[in-house]
Amino acid sequence: MPSLEWIDPVVADARRRAPDADGLPVVLVRVDQQRLYVWEQGRVTDIYDVSTAARGVGFEEGSFTTPLGLHRIAERFGEGAPRGTIFRARGNTGEIADILTEPGARSPRDNITSRILWLDGLEPGINRGGSVDSLRRYIYIHGTDEEGRIGEPASEGCVRMRNDEVIELFPRLPVGTPVLILDGPQVPELG
Rank of each mutant, 00 (worst) to 15 (best):
E5M: 07
D13S: 12
A14H: 08
R15E: 08
R15D: 02
R17W: 12
R17H: 15
P19Y: 12
D22K: 04
D22C: 09
G23D: 12
G23E: 08
L24P: 01
P25H: 09
V26Y: 13
V27P: 00
V31Y: 05
D32W: 06
Q34D: 09
Q34T: 10
R35N: 00
R35T: 07
V38K: 01
V38C: 04
W39L: 01
W39I: 00
Q41W: 05
Q41A: 15
G42N: 07
R43C: 06
D46F: 01
I47H: 03
I47R: 04
Y48H: 15
Y48P: 00
Y48L: 13
D49A: 14
D49L: 14
D49C: 03
V50S: 06
S51G: 10
T52V: 15
V57T: 15
T66G: 08
P67Y: 10
L68C: 09
G69E: 08
H71S: 02
R72C: 10
E79K: 01
E79D: 11
G80K: 10
G80V: 05
G80D: 11
P82N: 11
T85W: 05
F87M: 03
G91N: 08
N92Y: 03
T93F: 01
T93A: 02
G94S: 10
G94Q: 12
I96W: 06
I96E: 05
D98P: 00
I99W: 03
I99P: 00
T101C: 00
E102K: 10
R106K: 15
R106D: 04
R106I: 05
P108I: 10
N111H: 09
T113H: 05
S114Y: 09
L117C: 07
W118P: 01
L119W: 03
L119P: 03
D120P: 00
D120M: 07
G121K: 10
L122E: 07
L122Y: 02
P124H: 13
P124I: 06
P124M: 08
R128W: 10
G130I: 05
V132T: 11
V132N: 03
R137A: 13
I139W: 01
Y140A: 01
I141W: 04
I141Q: 09
H142P: 12
D145Q: 10
E146T: 12
E147L: 03
E147R: 11
G148R: 02
I150Y: 00
I150N: 04
G151W: 01
G151V: 02
E152W: 09
E152C: 00
A154I: 03
C158T: 08
V159A: 13
R160F: 05
E165H: 13
E165V: 12
E165G: 01
E165N: 13
V166D: 09
E168K: 08
E168P: 00
L169P: 06
F170E: 14
R172T: 14
L173V: 10
V175M: 05
G176D: 06
G176M: 06
V179R: 12
V179N: 06
L180W: 11
L182V: 13
D183L: 04
G184N: 05
P185D: 14
Q186D: 15
V187K: 12
P188E: 12
P188I: 11
L190Y: 09
